[in-house]
Amino acid sequence: MIRMENVHKSFGDNRVLQGMSLEIPKGTSMVIIGGSGTGKSVALKSVLGLIQPDEGRILVDGKPAGSGDRDAFLARFGMLFQGGALFDSLPVWQNVAFRLLRGALKRPPAEAREIAIEKLRRVGLKADVADRLPAELSGGMQKRVGLARAIAAEPEIIFFDEPTTGLDPIMSGVINDLIREIVVEMGATAMTITHDMSSVRAIADNVAMLHDGVIQWTGPVADMDASGDPYLDQFIHGRAEGPIEAVR
């Protein structure tokens, strides 16, 4: 279980998180929604320890995030980055098997390649993609490779940062379905940040609405449409009028 308690984070005068609290039960898929620049990525990166909160606590299975052996802590996570964040200089299979080629989870190269190709197949890519460089792939294929890399070491917790940004609606649907299938299949805890409502409905068990640095509403995805929360209503219906200022 991931628990964020009263987390604050500022960048200079910009107070991004202002007491965010959230709980993600083990084996569930939480989607955090909110407008651009509301701190969704900051929240996600804070759990991973990529950003240090100014105040508050983040607990993973009851232990402070990042405490103890950092490699062992990070080995529990997989992450799909917004732009894929694939390493340009490495072929696709070495990107996917990155964790399996070095460190504590190191396997022989042939075995790591085999696992990488299997994961590529799992995300709908053929084996001939394995030896290409990331720059030779389309945006949708790069997202799939990023997804394959995120699941390659079979992590307990998977983070998805804007998984459908920059993709056409059909490819977005494919990625959403893949994420849902993989999360269910692996029994992983998932945390996704997005402002794509089709992703929310496809991926989420629970939804949290982040605005003004705090969670405005959280609950099961089935309750989202009838929440009665003015912030959530405005966001999911994409209205310009409401408590969220359109010009921020």
Partner: peptide, 16 residues
């Protein structure tokens, strides 16, 4: 460029 495209964050999440 690696920093801007989050490749350095990706390295960290991959325990490197």
């Amino acid at each position: 460029t690696m920093k801007v495209t989050e490749q350095i964050d990706a390295l960290v999440t991959l325990s490197t």
